[in-house]
Computed example of a mutant assay.
Amino acid sequence: MAHARAALRCALDQLGYTGDAPDDAVLAVSELVANALEHAPGPYEVRLRWAAAGLICEVMDGDPCIPAIPSLLSVGLFEPAPDKRGGGLDALLEVLSERGRGLQIVHQLTSGAWGFSTERGKRTKVAWVMIPEGWAADR
């Protein structure tokens, strides 16, 4: 995973992306790579490609199934849910769980500009994030 982060950061630097945007993109892609490593048979591949709206970073893995997308919050990522207050130790552990937040993080970091796709007849899926062209300083 560290190799994917370093390679993406280097590519974004070379393309002129500056400020916080590369950090957000690298973190979002890191979450997608972590999901590929944990949930799909290897190997995975990270690709960059240009689109009309900007740069798309894709993470392709060997699992053609698109995961169930959690209900994405419109409020802050770690704000307590009213129905999770009280309930003792089990409720507290569920709220503090590190699992299940990766796609929420991707959603927050990309302002919703992410998703999944599959190619007909191939046993792969692609998780992608959009890196808007406006994030590059000299484009």
Rank of each mutant, 00 (worst) to 15 (best):
Y17S: 02
Y17Q: 02
T18A: 10
A21P: 02
A21L: 12
P22D: 07
P22F: 00
V26H: 00
V26S: 01
A28S: 06
A28N: 12
V29W: 04
V29Y: 11
S30P: 11
E31V: 05
A34S: 15
N35C: 08
N35I: 02
N35W: 06
A36C: 00
H39N: 11
P41Q: 01
P43M: 06
Y44H: 15
E45Y: 04
V46N: 02
V46F: 05
V46K: 13
L48S: 04
R49M: 01
W50T: 11
W50I: 05
A51C: 06
A52N: 09
A53Y: 03
A53I: 08
A53D: 15
L55P: 02
I56A: 02
I56P: 00
I56G: 00
I56E: 15
I56D: 14
V59I: 02
V59R: 00
V59W: 04
V59D: 01
M60D: 05
G62N: 15
D63N: 15
P64S: 06
P64N: 10
C65K: 14
P67L: 03
I69M: 14
S71M: 07
L72I: 14
V75M: 07
V75L: 07
G76Q: 09
L77P: 09
L77A: 06
E79M: 09
P80G: 01
A81K: 09
P82L: 08
K84C: 03
G86T: 07
G87I: 03
G87P: 00
G88K: 12
L89S: 09
L89H: 08
D90V: 07
D90S: 06
A91S: 11
L96M: 15
S97K: 07
R99M: 03
R99G: 09
G100N: 00
G102P: 03
Q104W: 02
Q104H: 14
Q104T: 07
Q104P: 01
I105H: 12
V106R: 03
Q108L: 12
Q108F: 08
T110D: 15
S111Q: 13
A113M: 10
A113F: 04
A113L: 07
W114Q: 03
G115P: 05
F116C: 05
S117F: 03
R120A: 15
G121Y: 02
